[in-house]
Design a protein around this nucleic acid. Structure first.
Length: 594
RNA sequence: GGUCGCGUAGCUCAACUGGCAGAGCAAUUGACUCUUAAUCAAUAGGUUGUAGGUUCGAUUCCUACCGCGAUCACCA
């Protein structure tokens, strides 16, 4: 039967319930017990009256007897209903009698009151005195035996998956517990939790492509946070010596099994300590989560057994590379020599500095071999503009990263608090054309001014919570530790029919259009594309495809609500001619890979 | 963004080399007072992701688009 027909049957049942005087969507339940409370305290509750409520997950009716299973947050238990021994349909009490059970469907939210008891087969059940429908469902859940396997449905409509397959709820509950235990861990150590801005006028504290947004009230472009670190440092200067944020981060970059554009990172700042303090702090944090949430220290991560009880080795990056490749980057003094050594490792990708070459060699030859939790420290200063140089060798900085099962799980350093040095490093690294390209963030003079008021010696850690969750819950895809992962918007054809969505309206749901210059001109002429507001944003994009430079234009603010990409010709003149009054904001040329 | 793969009933899956699109569950109707993937009988359910093309004939072959996945690049 088509979905729309199945739904029509349910709508008719709702009408029938109303004819019987029953409200298919009452406001309140009379629940007295969770299902796990009943099954867990059966001996104490046997014979007593209890009311459970939840989703009806299965339904077995046979003449004068019926059995169902009710699922709530705590678990699932059976309800047993017998004709003649339970209340009939009663508008005043809101109860549904046996004679109207054809109006009940699997998937409905129900409430059942009765005696706690066992059926003849010995299953703990509520022997029903009465049944109420608390919410009538309009759509059928997937088959309870085969469940839901379509990856797209699992990701787009996770509520279906975690209802039909309750075992998939478990690791999300554990992730919630992890958040609680992280807060407890830091609170117990005297840290204060702050909220820092997500919409920031400058993005800083890392190198990443930002999401750009616009604040109408201030008529200015702003950025979604790529990091919260610069705000934590302002708090340190303000005299809050131990602070942390569980912050949402947004990076407009690639998506894969360990990267998601929106993610959560724990960031801390501790004054009057250096990076060595943090090594101990994060080691303790992992151990605390392992024992408090999971009650063990050994975990299976990507097929490896990882033990968080052991002391984590601390290895200099140069030593790690030396051991793996025989190349001692400490002894290398010129870029050319470093690149020759790289080439000898089969890495034909010349780097701009000795430090970059070291990191390249490390990523290629060492990173994936680090299975047990390991600290790699002493990063080259070229890639660490915010960290303090090591006293023993100023080519390297007081910084460490954590690797577990070949995955980077945190980046941490002693913070550079010399404002003159920092500004010099920034100015050297910053190139205006790299702005918004993820190469380096813009110069933040407000931050430098803050440092000039003296920020005490400080250190911070920044483990990504999704990766931590993947390690502890055994998930190998970041999409499985994010309940609502990012998906392209989609309005299904069947929903267009059911909800009577007109094509023009549906077009608002579609995001991107790809048009040739001729098509674009035609669409403008036909009035298919019109500005939504008073301004349009135009971004020229230059694509380098095997040496051929191609150019296209991305326009946002036209009536389809998404991005219009036009190939082949400069459209700014055409737009200006078609909409004389419109303000066209031309953004800098963006470079993309072919 | 590149490359490769996938998309069939509400769900899980069939359909050989291009030849009448099928089954189980769910749904509807009926039987059944201890079932738990309840059982039994009957009925109904499809624009094969969308739009084109090739062909006497397309779920199958071709093109474009939409969505998802894998992988590479960038990044954490």
């Amino acid at each position: 039967m088509p979905l729309a027909t199945l739904r029509g049957v349910r709508l008719e049942k709702i009408a029938s319930l109303r004819e019987l005087g029953l409200n298919p969507f009452p406001a309140k339940s009379n629940r007295t017990h969770m299902t796990a409370e009943v099954t867990g305290n059966y001996d104490a509750l046997e014979g007593q009256t209890a009311t459970v409520a939840g989703r009806l997950m299965s339904w077995r009716k046979m003449g004068g007897m019926a059995f169902g299973n009710v699922q709530d947050q705590s678990g699932n238990m059976q309800i047993a209903l017998r004709r003649g021994e339970m209340q009939g349909t009663d508008a005043a009490a809101g109860t549904l009698g046996f004679e109207n059970f054809n109006l009940l469907d699997v998937g409905d939210i129900v409430e059942c009151t009765g005696k706690v008891g066992k059926t003849k087969t010995g299953e703990m059940s509520i022997i029903a005195d009465s049944l109420r429908i608390l919410t009538k469902s309009l759509r059928a859940f997937p088959d309870k035996h085969f469940g839901i396997k379509d990856r797209e449905i699992i990701l787009r409509k996770r509520y279906i998956d975690t209802t039909v397959n309750p075992e998939n709820r478990v690791h999300f509950e554990q992730i919630s517990q992890m958040l609680f235990q992280i807060r407890r861990f830091f609170n117990e150590r005297g840290f204060l939790e702050f909220n820092t801005p997500i919409i920031q006028s400058q993005y800083g504290g890392g190198t990443a492509k930002p999401f750009i947004t616009h604040v109408n009230a201030l008529s200015t472009d702003m950025y979604l946070a790529i990091s919260h670190e610069l705000y934590l440092k302002r708090l340190i200067t303000a005299g809050f010596d131990k602070v942390f944020v569980i912050g949402r981060h947004f990076r407009n970059e690639g998506i894969d099994r360990s990267h998601h554009p929106e993610f959560v990172m724990l960031e801390t700042m501790t004054a009057y300590e250096n990076y060595e303090y943090n090594m101990q702090l994060i080691e303790d944090l992992f151990r605390h989560i392992a024992t408090s949430v999971f009650d063990r220290t050994v975990f299976q991560v990507k097929g490896h057994e990882v033990d968080f009880a052991k002391v984590w080795p601390r290895v200099l990056m140069t030593d790690a590379v030396l051991e793996a490749t025989g190349i001692d980057f400490k002894a290398i003094t010129s870029v050319d020599e470093a690149n020759e050594k790289l080439a000898s490792l089969g890495i034909n990708d010349p780097q701009p500095s000795v430090g970059n070459a070291l990191v390249r060699a490390f990523e290629e030859k060492v990173e994936k071999t680090l299975i047990q939790p390991t600290f790699i420290y002493g990063h080259p200063i070229e890639i660490s503009p915010l960290a303090k140089p090591m006293q023993s060798d100023p080519r390297y900085v007081e910084r460490f990263e954590i690797f577990i099962a070949g995955m980077e799980c945190g980046d941490n350093w002693s913070e550079q608090n010399d404002p003159v040095q920092l500004l010099a490093t920034w100015k050297k690294a910053f190139k205006p054309e790299d702005r918004d390209e993820g190469e380096f963030h813009p110069l933040d003079y407000d931050f430098v001014e803050m440092l000039e008021h003296a920020m005490p010696p400080t250190t911070g850690i920044g483990p990504g919570l999704e990766r931590m969750a993947m390690i502890f819950t055994g998930q190998e895809d970041i999409y499985d530790v994010i309940y609502f992962p990012m998906m392209k918007p989609l309005l299904s054809e069947v929903n267009k029919v059911i909800y009577d969505v007109k094509d023009e309206e549906a077009q608002n749901v579609k995001v991107d259009l790809l048009l040739t210059a001729e098509e674009f001109a035609a669409w403008l002429k036909q009035g298919k594309l019109k500005p939504r507001g008073g301004a349009l944003a135009l971004t020229p994009v230059e694509t380098d495809w095997e040496g051929n430079k191609l150019k296209h234009y991305e326009i946002t603010g036209l009536s389809n609500g998404g991005k219009v990409t036009v190939r082949g010709a400069d459209v700014s003149v055409l737009i200006a001619e078609t909409f004389p009054g419109i303000e066209v904001k031309t953004r800098p040329v963006r470079k993309a890979n072919g």
